[in-house]
């Protein structure tokens, strides 16, 4: 089945929809960019890994020391 836009409303609101699409794409780019910058600013691989939401005892010095 193919999707076809038939209603004139879609044509009339084309500019608005494209504009909103661009704004949303920009918002995604900002959140992604902020994530990259914030993670890189940590400056330490172990800190990067702590962003992983899985418990990794081996990256915590005190707990990993005995292994």
């Amino acid at each position: 089945m193919t999707l076809r836009v038939e209603h004139e409303l879609h044509e009339r609101r084309k500019g608005r929809n494209y504009g909103l699409g661009l704004i949303l794409a920009g918002f995604i780019a900002i959140v992604f960019g902020l994530t990259v910058v914030k993670v890189l600013q940590l400056g330490d691989t172990a800190e990067f890994e702590r962003f992983d939401h899985v418990a990794r005892p081996q990256i915590i010095p005190e707990e990993g020391a005995g292994e």
């Binding site: 209603h7 409303l9 609101r13 500019g15 608005r16 504009g19």
Partner: peptide, 15 residues
């Protein structure tokens, strides 16, 4: 409804 939307003579644009 679509009818009430279509009744608007002017549709606001991004500007």
């Amino acid at each position: 409804s679509d009818i009430s939307v279509s009744d608007h003579s002017y549709e606001a644009n991004m500007g």
